[in-house]
Design a protein around this nucleic acid. Structure first.
Length: 224
DNA sequence: GCATTAACAGCCG
DNA sequence: CGGCTGTTAATGC
């Protein structure tokens, strides 16, 4: 259980809820740490929680039949995910791996369904989120064809600054080049070169252990 | 060949 | 110091 204040702090969608809904929701959420390298869940696991990122960086990934790992989405603080698996009550179709020490919020399935049944604001949020994810996954199909490293890095970063998924995000994010590489499916060296290129194009700034986005549109459309 | 992994020195917090 | 970065050398597909 978390406080109402904490809920508002970690869940931007909760700002649309009324007092009753907030009260009901906060009772169905617990927090949990996920150490760097640990799996929050494996593909095929049942994870009966809707999950929110409070801090850190994780990746949502699948392993293809040939054994190659493909990142479906990068997740940072503010990201909420797993509504598909919770709604359909089915096993997870992807791995969730912490790329650095992270903290998550776990919402009980029953609480999720209570919101689903009772809150208009929550349903609006869900639709918006589904819609955005679909766009992102469509982009992913393209992205596999553009094998070019800077494009992959640009896309990975654009994910992490998606204004619909992260309405409260500012332009800076703490993430190492190693972690970005894991999201983009690249070695650290390639990521390093790609970042420097994107920096010279004026699309972002590279700092030690972090990046600052200068042109989100430029990153989102890079390589097209 | 190309890309990834390994290795290492510099550097910043 | 430890972790991150930038570069080079080795290794694997």
């Amino acid at each position: 259980m978390i406080s109402a204040e904490r809920l508002r702090q970690i869940a931007f969608w909760a700002h649309g809820l009324n007092e009753t809904e907030i009260e009901q929701t906060r009772r169905g959420i617990v927090e949990k740490d996920v150490a760097k390298g640990a799996y929050l869940c494996h593909r095929g696991d049942r994870l009966d929680f809707w999950t929110g990122m409070i801090g850190g960086v994780m990746k949502m990934a699948t392993v293809s039949k040939s054994g190659k790992s493909a990142t479906l989405a990068g997740l940072r603080a503010g990201s909420w995910f797993g509504e598909g698996s919770v709604l359909k009550s089915e096993p997870r179709r992807y791995d969730l791996i912490a790329l650095r020490d992270s903290r998550v919020a776990l919402m009980e399935r029953a609480t999720f369904f209570w919101l689903y049944d009772n809150s208009v604001a929550f349903n609006r949020f869900l639709i918006r989120q589904f819609n955005e994810r679909i766009s992102q996954f469509i982009g992913l199909v393209e992205y596999d064809r553009t094998l070019d490293a800077p494009s992959r890095v640009a896309r990975s970063i654009a994910w992490l600054f998606n204004p619909v998924l992260y309405p409260t995000a500012d332009t800076h994010l703490e993430i190492t080049q190693e972690e970005l590489g894991q999201l983009a499916g690249l070695s650290r060296q390639h990521t390093n070169e790609a970042l420097k290129l994107l920096e010279t194009r004026g699309l972002l700034g590279v700092e030690r252990g972090g990046i600052t986005v200068r042109s989100l549109a430029g990153l989102a459309n890079y390589g097209e």
